[in-house]
């Protein structure tokens, strides 16, 4: 593939060699064909550490082309250090356009969040996954969990949720909340808050999941059913805040808590920085707009 001259010398477009990309794309095709099934793949060592998004990076490298526009978020924000680092990696190795606007991106790589702005058909959301196996905390052995998936033997997870309810009165899983995909495979949505789980269901975008260290890829094709596990008498519920975003006043977004002093003072702001900025640009403001302002440490200019 021809390379723009600005790219790192000696490396292929998007870092990985074409054979590796083909291997990854084959794994992705299989994953799309069997929604929620974890496909083993020959994950490579990347120049970024395992556990820092190598699975997502390999998936993105496998699907990205010169015409794509990439957005990278971590904790919902485009300007967290690891998101900046990954965006820079692709800007350097693939020379693609990058954006912070959810609706302008063709590929969005994410860690721990789904953007608040609804995704559209044709977009691809790439999740970075630390532990792909939903049953792992219940059964540490891969040989066992593969068998359990094959037999659709998921009773152990329902027992776990039931035990939560009997002990705490609630299901005590707040993030990485297990889902059933297409009525067949139990899937780990990666550590997104359960607040984001409903967004996965019948989403028009293609959702791809990459776990580099664990060497697994899985997928939720567009418009596929994704159901969070629950019981009839204890239906699935998402988090709610008593507050709204201090900056933009949103009461429908996931809020990060910010400690403002050492005497219990705190405030809440949107975790999705693009969503929050857009609302403010549109004239929305929070309860105490004068009290707050975002400021990035150092120079805010993001070259990417």
């Amino acid at each position: 593939m021809p390379q723009p001259s600005s790219l790192k010398a000696g490396y292929n477009f998007a870092y990985l060699d074409e054979q590796t990309k083909r291997m990854i794309r084959r794994a992705i095709l299989k994953a799309v064909a069997i929604p929620g099934y974890q496909v083993p793949f020959g994950s490579r060592e990347m120049p970024l550490p395992y556990g820092w998004g190598t699975g997502g990076i390999q998936v993105t490298a496998g699907i990205i082309g010169p015409d794509d526009t990439l957005k990278v978020i971590d904790q919902g924000a485009d300007d967290t250090t690891n998101a900046v680092s990954i965006r820079r990696f692709f800007a350097n190795t693939a020379g693609v356009a990058t954006t912070e606007q959810t609706e302008d991106a063709t590929i969005i790589q994410t860690r721990h969040r789904i953007p608040e702005t609804p995704l559209q058909a044709g977009q691809i959301l790439v999740y970075q996954v630390p532990i792909p196996e939903p049953l792992r905390w219940l059964e540490p052995r891969e040989t066992e969990t593969r068998k359990m998936h094959a037999l659709q033997e998921y009773g152990i997870m329902y027992v776990r949720l039931y035990e939560d309810i009997s002990r705490y009165g609630h299901i005590s899983t707040a993030y990485d909340y297990p889902v059933m995909v297409n009525g067949r495979y139990l899937m780990r949505p990666s550590p997104i808050p359960k607040f984001d789980n409903p967004k996965m269901d019948r989403n028009p975008a293609l959702q791809l999941f990459g776990a580099g260290r664990e060497k697994r890829i899985y997928a939720v094709p567009p418009y596929t059913s994704v159901k969070s596990l629950d019981f009839k008498d204890y239906p699935f519920q998402v988090q709610k805040w008593d507050d709204c975003c201090t900056l933009c006043g949103a009461d429908d977004s996931f809020l990060d808590e910010i400690i403002t002093d050492d005497a219990g003072g705190r405030m809440f702001v949107c975790s999705d920085s693009d969503y929050c900025a857009k609302r403010r640009d549109a004239g929305h403001s929070g309860p105490n707009p004068g009290e707050a302002a975002t400021k990035k440490i150092g120079e805010a200019g993001d070259a990417a």
Binding site: P49, Y50, G51, T80, A174, K194, R213
Partner: peptide, 29 residues
């Protein structure tokens, strides 16, 4: 050790969102 070191050290990455989810839950409980 490359896998182990990476995953262990990813604990340094922000986990605001997960932690916020836990905070919300533990306050409710």
């Amino acid at each position: 050790n490359v896998e182990a070191s990476g995953f262990l050290q990813h604990l340094k990455l922000p986990h605001y969102v997960d932690f916020q989810s836990e905070l919300e839950l533990i306050r409710k409980l």
